[in-house]
Design a protein around this nucleic acid. Sequence first.
DNA 1: AATGAATGAGGGTTCATTCAT
DNA 2: CATGAATGAACCCTCATTCAT
Lengths: 214, 214, 214, 214
Amino acid sequence: MPRPSVEAERKAQILASTCKVIAAEGFRHLRVSDVAKDAGVSGGTVHYYFETKRELTDAAFEHCFEVSVARRRWILESDEPPLSRLRMVVESYLPEGAETVEAWKVWVELWVEAIRNPELQELNERFYGEWRDIVASIFRDGQASGDIHPSGDPLELANMMVSMLDGLALQVLAGSRAMTVDTMRTTCLRFVDQLSTANVGQPVAVAVRTPGIG
Amino acid sequence: MPRPSVEAERKAQILASTCKVIAAEGFRHLRVSDVAKDAGVSGGTVHYYFETKRELTDAAFEHCFEVSVARRRWILESDEPPLSRLRMVVESYLPEGAETVEAWKVWVELWVEAIRNPELQELNERFYGEWRDIVASIFRDGQASGDIHPSGDPLELANMMVSMLDGLALQVLAGSRAMTVDTMRTTCLRFVDQLSTANVGQPVAVAVRTPGIG
Amino acid sequence: MPRPSVEAERKAQILASTCKVIAAEGFRHLRVSDVAKDAGVSGGTVHYYFETKRELTDAAFEHCFEVSVARRRWILESDEPPLSRLRMVVESYLPEGAETVEAWKVWVELWVEAIRNPELQELNERFYGEWRDIVASIFRDGQASGDIHPSGDPLELANMMVSMLDGLALQVLAGSRAMTVDTMRTTCLRFVDQLSTANVGQPVAVAVRTPGIG
Amino acid sequence: MPRPSVEAERKAQILASTCKVIAAEGFRHLRVSDVAKDAGVSGGTVHYYFETKRELTDAAFEHCFEVSVARRRWILESDEPPLSRLRMVVESYLPEGAETVEAWKVWVELWVEAIRNPELQELNERFYGEWRDIVASIFRDGQASGDIHPSGDPLELANMMVSMLDGLALQVLAGSRAMTVDTMRTTCLRFVDQLSTANVGQPVAVAVRTPGIG
DNA sequence: AATGAATGAGGGTTCATTCAT
DNA sequence: CATGAATGAACCCTCATTCAT
């Protein structure tokens, strides 16, 4: 009577290790044996669940983003006012804290791989799109409630904001001395504040601490 | 009687090929032999000029960015009005056209590699910083001339803009159907327009065609 | 209440699958898992009945030849005249029809393996010997009845004939365009006819259709 | 100034080793590393000259047969009487002596592999065909000179003879106690003698010693 | 009696690097 | 200067075998 979930359990365990290794060593250096070691199984076992390395990494990317997007869905469902929710988005996006940094590194590796991998492009389309929609819906709420300037398409504003976050995070991850987490926070919050209908001259909002995006 | 410049010539030739291969195949798949083939030399010759693969790729990144940033320096020196220059920046940044796309791909690979490579972090700091400063100086000019809203730190605005460009370009390169070059252009130009002192409700400026960023 | 014969049944089923796989994929490519799949059991089950792969294949060869030789024993017992029986031998040997071809392929694999496997040499000695004796006895009958030339040792004639069949079949199996089943038939029947006491110039006997040797 | 024939030399050396390993271990057990060891080069070197194992073995088969057929071509050109030449064929075919036995083992492995490998089928067609033609031409000569019975198509007789040799050799190689080299010789020579126009009752010709077929 | 999860040794293949010429 | 032959460590993947259930 095999436990019903051995396969699901093992797969999840191996995929988590794969994400960990991708973040730690870079996709480029991922060795199946490292994943195995981290997962505490043999190399053969990894291949028992994933035919090829490619299949493994594709699944790992998917796994990582599922978790990642799910983790931030609460922001959408929060009943904080829209501008606060945008600030939460910023906070949750900052590459700070092991888990969030790990998630970021995996996203970045995904994007680079996606350039030449249609399967990953599809993955990005799906998860990135979902996230963009979450942010767009906050803008929509904000315009509806009058907290946010009525001019500007919510989707366009969302694209501005998430791309800005991506670009800045990239620099933070690349160890830029000119772009630290703090500078990133300030920059993003300023962008948010300028969208407020009560904007001019107000100080940048105090950072709201929220769980990371990991 | 070898010309004294034969070494410099060969090196440049090999580095150009390296960039080409990075863009075409991805850093991850770069083989020294591919570079050699593209450069029309033997594998041994590549190692004659670059001791290790790492040395080769580090040099190639440097080579690529030197060219890349130099190519866009004319925007800084243009005597167009600041807002036009910002629109030129946007245009020159769009991942459109073989050369620009190639340059973009190399930048992206650099960032990912830089996460774990201090040498590349330094490189990024240097070239990305130079580029950020170019953009910041345009904002400064715009505020001085009164074309751009006086509120907002020029450097911060520059960070917003270049990070937005980076983030959007990443999605375009990743083949996103939701983020095409056209959407990217519209989004960025809207951002620029909203900074204008003559901003509200004006239509998005007609795209100014400029050479790519390659 | 497991029937006592369940083991024998399962073994036979697994062995049949093994022969099938040997014929289909070649001994060289036989994987225990393929046998298991074909037999509709798990890989573990195969090893439950056969400790090692070697044990499995040795047993499979034996199984195959038992069936194979048994299938042709009726020729010995036929009361057709000796020359007819020889023609039946030829017909039953032609690598034509799925079953016969499968059997041939297994024989061939056996011979090659036997070169380095004493166990299989023994097997070959036994079954091949039995078959040779069957053919020799037909020659003996033919000489006794006067249908076949009295000169020539029956065993030697049998060796000539079966080796010729083997050599020709090998070429047919190897896909030779110069040695088709039809050419093989003609060649062998000519050999038989030339042994007849009423031999010179007679046309080759019409092929006698018989079941294959499988 | 690289020696002009490094490649040809190395290839020949590696192919010879490949044949040796095929004969010694069987095609089934051939490891690239064994070939490398026998050739006194590294595993990498083998792949430097042969992209894949398959390419290596295909080339090795070709190499082996080229040598093998060339070695026996002198029989065709001999000016001995046809029947003597046939006896020489028999002798040169007997799996006796290291070199000849090695060649035989490789032929046998080829045939088995050819069953599922069209490339090898082509190879067999070519070399086996050439050999069959050599033998057929001897029969033709014999009939022209009146030494050999005029009845019987030379090609058909050749097929009888070479297939008989193949079948018998197979049994010898498989270690049959009932089919030794001596029995094989006797059997084949009897076949030859029966073709003589001066045939009845003559003793089997004394074995003519010739170099092996290797 | 039977399974399927897990193993790990083994082998083909790749490729950066070396070096004699 | 430049080459191409040669290397060998590294890595992915296969598959016979084991064993708890």
